[in-house]
Amino acid sequence: MSYPFQTAETPVWDPALRVGQVYLGQVRSVAEVMEVASGLTPLRNGSCDLDPATFATFVDHLVKFYNAGRHPTLSHLLRGVLLVSLVLLKRAGGPPPPAGNEVLDALLAEAVALERTMPV
């Protein structure tokens, strides 16, 4: 059983059920802490809608939150959510965060590698 994520037009990720549920739970928690909407809406049919514009805003805030972090444990907790979110943002056609920051450039490269393991 899987937990598909899709925009109105496009499937963006079809992870295993528990993987999708864990990611969605992490996003909900991070969005609540950052006080920003995530752009992800779980549906009764066992899938999740992704609103590209709202999700792009969420990812932008997440990148800033991650870069501003001064606590190593928080950085590790956010890293996985951020990497998956960067892949979903790309697949949803959202604008990538601006490159140029050494840390962000490394994350974007890692997201490219991660994307190969994320089925659509």
Score class of each variant (00 low, 15 high):
S38G: 15
M118R: 08
T41F: 12
A68K: 11
Q6D: 09
M34K: 01
A68Q: 11
E35W: 00
L62G: 07
M118F: 10
Q6H: 15
G46F: 00
G80V: 06
V19Y: 00
L83W: 05
G39K: 07
V22H: 04
L83V: 04
Y66D: 05
P15R: 05
R79D: 11
P119C: 10
T10R: 15
K90T: 07
R28W: 11
L74E: 11
S29F: 14
V112L: 11
R70S: 14
V112Q: 14
H61M: 14
H76Q: 14
A31P: 01
A37M: 08
W13D: 01
M34I: 06
V63A: 04
L82G: 07
P96I: 03
T57C: 04
T54D: 11
L107P: 02
L40H: 01
M1T: 13
P11I: 11
L82M: 06
A111K: 01
W13I: 04
S38L: 10
A16K: 11
E102D: 12
L89T: 07
L78W: 02
S75P: 00
A16E: 15
A37F: 09
L77G: 08
V36K: 02
N67G: 12
F65Y: 14
L62K: 03
L86N: 03
L104G: 03
V36W: 00
A92F: 01
L104I: 10
L78T: 05
G69S: 15
G20V: 09
L108C: 07
L86M: 06
P96F: 05
Q26M: 13
A31R: 05
E102C: 00
F55K: 03
G25T: 14
L78I: 09
V81R: 00
P52W: 09
C48R: 05
A99S: 15
P15D: 07
N45L: 09
L77M: 11
D51W: 01
Q6A: 15
E110D: 15
D49W: 11
G80W: 08
G20I: 05
D14K: 13
N67A: 13
D14M: 10
L83I: 07
C48D: 02
L17T: 12
P97W: 00
L89F: 05
V84I: 13
T54Q: 13
V81W: 02
G100Q: 06
L108T: 05
F55Q: 03
G39L: 10
F55P: 00
V33S: 11
V59A: 02
L17K: 12
A68N: 13
P97M: 04
E32M: 08
T10W: 07
H76I: 12
A31E: 05
G25W: 08
P96R: 10
M1K: 09
Q6W: 06
P52L: 09
A68T: 06
D60S: 15
A106D: 12
L83K: 04
P97F: 00
M118L: 15
V63R: 02
A109W: 08
G93R: 02
P4M: 11
N67H: 11
A56K: 09
A106T: 09
T54K: 10
Q21S: 08
S85P: 10
S29E: 14
E32Y: 12
S85K: 07
T54S: 06
A92W: 01
A111V: 06
F58K: 01
S38T: 07
V87Y: 01
Y23I: 08
L24Y: 08
A16Q: 14
A16H: 13
